[in-house]
Nucleic acid binder design. Structure first.
Length: 296
DNA sequence: GCGACAG
DNA sequence: ATCTTGTCGC
């Protein structure tokens, strides 16, 4: 069982002739975004373990350093004499499959419908997180949504597990996790959603929190542990001249959907215990998804 | 060597 | 995010 991303990668890899190689970055480019270079590397190792009939070994580091598991394959093909593949043997992948370009177009289309502004009801807030495990070389995702009331008491927990359609690629995180987030969030019926990732602090204004909030039609707030885009000025985060989020207790807070910039922090504070690194619903969702992963 | 791009 | 031994500091 191969994921859509793997099928696209296989198409590109299969077009590299025997005796030639392509860099992880150029293969990522053929998939629509160079940022996926690291994901290409890890997916090649995954394909190897899955015993798929694909020349995963023809993907190498841009310096010519192959995966160590690829060395015997490349020697057999005459593509490797020393420890590094010669520059003359590099090709750009003849076949393109712009998987990521299509996802980018979806993000741009969706972002036109994004609503930034307002103060939603927040009697019950949901926290969304996803954890992962490997089962026979297949990655499985475990999503949890934990619903809490204004006194931070747990009202409801919903879980859903599934095979993610693609690996983690910076700026495309939502496509990896949205299935589980949508299923569990809809069951919880929260007034507002906290998502473990960025809101509008994203190159196309559509971080995971914005994406999920928009598709679910639920106000949402992103709380990420590290920065994706923007510059800090005091506790504010700017993208260009635009104030898009906050640096608060070490986290990066931004509106997802149907919340204002100022209001996103107000609501986050309401569900955030002093001394903790995330709003309570996210801490609980994180714990729950990790424990459900262990039980599975 | 440095900077760095959520999870 | 996950994997994962030994090491560091209170």
């Amino acid at each position: 069982m191969l994921t859509p991303f793997q099928l696209a990668l296989i198409k590109v890899l299969s077009s590299i002739p025997p005796g030639k190689v392509a860099s992880f970055g150029s293969i990522a480019e053929a998939l629509g975004d160079r940022r996926a270079a690291l994901a290409v590397r890890s997916e090649c190792l995954r394909l190897r373990k899955l015993n798929v009939e694909v020349p995963w070994w023809r993907a190498v580091n841009s310096d010519g350093v192959p995966l160590k598991e690829a060395i015997p394959f490349l020697k057999r093909e005459g593509a490797l004499r020393g420890s590094v593949v010669e520059r003359e043997l590099f090709v750009d992948p003849p076949e393109k499959e712009p998987f990521l370009s299509r996802l980018r177009a979806i993000q741009e289309k969706l972002s036109e419908r994004l609503v930034i502004g307002g103060l939603p009801d927040s009697e019950v807030a949901g926290g969304l997180d996803v954890s992962y495990s490997l089962v026979n070389g297949i990655e499985v995702a475990y999503a949890s949504c934990v619903l809490v009331d204004e006194r931070l008491r747990v009202v409801k927990v919903e879980r859903f597990s599934y095979v993610p359609p693609m690996p983690y690629v910076p700026t495309y995180l939502a496509f990896r996790e949205i299935r589980g987030m949508l299923v569990t969030a809809r069951r919880c019926k929260p007034d507002v959603l906290f998502v473990d990732g960025q809101g509008i602090l994203h190159p196309r204004l559509l971080g995971e929190a914005s994406h999920v909030g928009l598709v679910a039609g639920i106000p949402s707030i992103g709380v990420a542990k590290s920065k994706l885009v923007g510059n800090l000025k005091g506790n504010k985060i700017f993208v260009g001249k635009e104030h898009r989020g906050w640096h608060f207790r070490g986290g990066f807070v931004s509106p997802g959907h149907m919340v204002g910039v100022k209001e996103s922090l107000e609501i986050a504070k309401k569900f955030w215990l002093p001394g903790e690194k995330q709003p309570r619903p996210l801490i609980l969702a994180h714990r729950d998804s990790k424990s459900s992963r262990r039980l599975a």
